[in-house]
Design a protein around this nucleic acid. Structure first.
Lengths: 207, 207
DNA sequence: GTCTATAAGCTGATAGAC
DNA sequence: GTCTATCAGCTTATAGAC
């Protein structure tokens, strides 16, 4: 810390670090103040309360987590077959850079789902109707096997995100370091694309 | 509450409910006592401290989460091709009955990974060497494509567990009820088996 | 804007009566 | 074993000096 950031930025950066590591309930404002190298009173001066500070961090985290891929996924001019590799490559890279994001978001989702869902929906980028429309269209043309559109999206999300959620378990049980974990998820990129596309697209859809 | 359980059992059942819903840090011993219909002092009388009570709940949760499938997965007499459908069917059913378990375990994994890993390793059922040995053997025989054994296991876990982690998000965004969510994951059973096996097994391996 | 000092309330845990 | 009453410590937030 103590870079050439103004006080507000220092507090926010410290808050992000502490909240992402511990979650809202276990994080203490004292930890954040200390991490930022400022006094506890300043935190309330700038952000009014712990909860208001937390919400700002959460909203920015959601933005990082979703806005890197959602615009393209919602673009009707990008074909379904092009969306799959784009999603897997982009998302894996975002998660390599922000490995704590999934657990942070998904565990706070349990405590205050409404805040997260509302933030997502205000962020207009979330428009699943285009993607789901493409899926149903491909199914009508016989290019894709019948399955619920949500299950298509869930397959992509599951295979890409889950390893980052289980990361502490994986690394300890397999006794591997961060570099080896990165290799593991890099290997997954090609695998996920092949698995998802190989399963859902019919011969006609592949041609 | 207030069934014909003894006091210790009542406290444990209440603790499980509160801890799984809120996590360790956000749960208050007062909540647990109230939920159990007993006085706060009794909680300490039976379990000494909040943390000791929590650890018991976590250890039992890990047992539920893992011991339903691990013995079979570690059984050398069950073939790899039989393990896949067994895993997907059993695990999905366990999760339908205990939908809060994955978020609980995976979010506490962030706070105290050592406790969880140690508990798992003491629980002798966790023996991945058999499964990984079968994978490498199948690869040598040309029945399975080359991939890191962990990625095979991760595919199964991801596709099966992740929907339960993202459940609050899925149900709100798709505006569906619990029954419809159950239908979604039931549809996934056959899909996951087909996807995982279709991808990893070669023609030789399928025959 | 930034600090020190402190208020106000909550939380885990215990003492002691029954 | 179970209760009421209470303590000691911590946590968020604010008052007020500089």
């Amino acid at each position: 810390m103590a870079k050439d950031l103004n006080t507000e930025q220092k507090i926010k950066e410290a808050a992000r670090k502490v909240f992402l590591k511990k979650g809202f309930a276990a994080a203490r404002t004292r930890d954040i103040a200390e991490e930022a190298g400022i006094n506890l009173a300043l935190l309330n001066y700038y952000f009014r309360s712990k909860e208001k500070l937390f919400r700002q961090i959460m909203e920015e985290s959601l933005h990082t987590f979703f806005s890197s891929v959602l615009p393209t996924m919602s673009d009707p001019n990008v074909s379904l077959r092009d969306k799959v590799p784009f999603f897997v490559n982009s998302y894996t890279d975002v998660l390599i850079s922000n490995p704590e994001l999934p657990v942070f978001i998904l565990s706070e989702l349990r405590n205050d789902p409404d805040h997260i869902v509302q933030t997502l929906q205000m962020n207009k980028r979330l428009n699943l109707s285009v993607l789901f429309g493409q899926i149903m269209e491909a199914q009508q043309k016989g290019e894709m096997i019948p399955l619920q559109p949500w299950n298509f999206l869930l397959n992509l999300l599951s295979l890409t995100v889950f390893p980052f959620i289980a990361r502490p378990l994986i690394q300890r049980l397999s006794d591997t370091n961060d570099e080896q974990f990165k290799q593991l998820v890099e290997e997954r990129k090609a695998m996920i694309k092949a698995m998802v596309m190989g399963y859902v697209f019919t011969e006609k859809g592949k041609g």
